[in-house]
Simulated scan of single mutants.
Amino acid sequence: MTITGVDSRYLEAISGAGPGSGRLRFLHGGTGSPVVLLHTVRTQAEHFQGLIPLLLADHSVFALDLPGMGYSDIEPGASYEEPAMRSAVIRLIEQLDLQNVTLIGESMGAVLALTAAVSVPDRVRRVIAVNAYDYAGESQDPVLSLGSSCRASSRPGWARRSQGSNPGPSCGRSCAEGSSTSPA
């Protein structure tokens, strides 16, 4: 499948570096403010084939194949739990030195967008989380718990209020300060 104006690129594997360090494939195209697209389970970057062309005129688009999916490496013995997947998202953002990023995720990708934003708030401008997947059980990971709290605080008024603002880091600040609702 080919998407006009987009090419396939790779972040090479980092030997012995831990979770999310395998070879990662991503699609890239466009110029402007960076948008990182995060797909759901058992799909790949082309999951966003209808959205990518709409973004290319105004944005530099990075659609990541999450570890073990699409054309990214399947690492023997690797974890595919949320913290390991989040590490791959953060690796993409940091290794490409992306700033003022908009993270857009669907289902599992939505959770990764939320938790990555909490992990690197200085690099994330906004998050669009669509149909966020709710990891089962209580998490011992404080970042995943914080992402879940922020997801739970998202209400219809939050989206309207946040347009043009900075919901990623402010969500992290609100949740870290103990607020269970979106800022007024």
Rank of each mutant, 00 (worst) to 15 (best):
I3P: 01
V6N: 09
S8E: 13
L11K: 04
E12A: 13
E12P: 05
I14A: 11
A17H: 00
A17C: 01
G18C: 00
G18S: 04
G18W: 00
G18K: 00
G20Y: 03
S21L: 00
G22I: 01
H28C: 08
G30W: 06
G32R: 04
G32Q: 07
P34C: 02
V35K: 12
L38V: 04
L38R: 03
T40P: 12
V41I: 08
T43G: 05
Q44E: 08
Q44C: 09
Q44Y: 06
Q44W: 14
Q44I: 01
E46T: 13
H47P: 00
G50K: 01
L51I: 15
L54C: 13
L56F: 08
A57Q: 14
H59M: 06
S60H: 02
S60Q: 07
V61I: 15
F62V: 09
A63T: 12
L64P: 13
P67W: 03
G70K: 14
G70D: 10
I74A: 10
E75M: 11
G77M: 11
G77N: 12
A78T: 02
A78K: 00
E82D: 02
M85C: 09
S87P: 06
A88C: 11
V89Y: 12
R91P: 05
L92G: 13
Q95N: 05
L96A: 07
L98Y: 05
L98P: 05
Q99M: 11
Q99K: 07
Q99I: 09
N100I: 03
N100H: 12
L103D: 07
E106R: 07
E106A: 12
M108T: 14
M108D: 07
G109S: 07
A110M: 13
A110F: 00
V111C: 07
V111H: 01
L112M: 14
A116F: 00
D122M: 03
V124W: 03
V127T: 11
V127E: 10
A136M: 07
A136P: 09
E138N: 09
S139A: 12
Q140E: 13
P142M: 10
V143P: 01
L144D: 11
L146E: 14
C150V: 15
R151Y: 12
A152V: 00
P156I: 02
P156C: 03
P156N: 04
W158N: 14
R160L: 11
R161D: 07
N166Y: 14
P167E: 10
P167F: 06
P167S: 14
G168T: 05
G168H: 02
P169Q: 15
C171Q: 10
C171M: 10
G172F: 03
S174G: 07
C175M: 15
C175I: 14
G178M: 03
P183H: 06
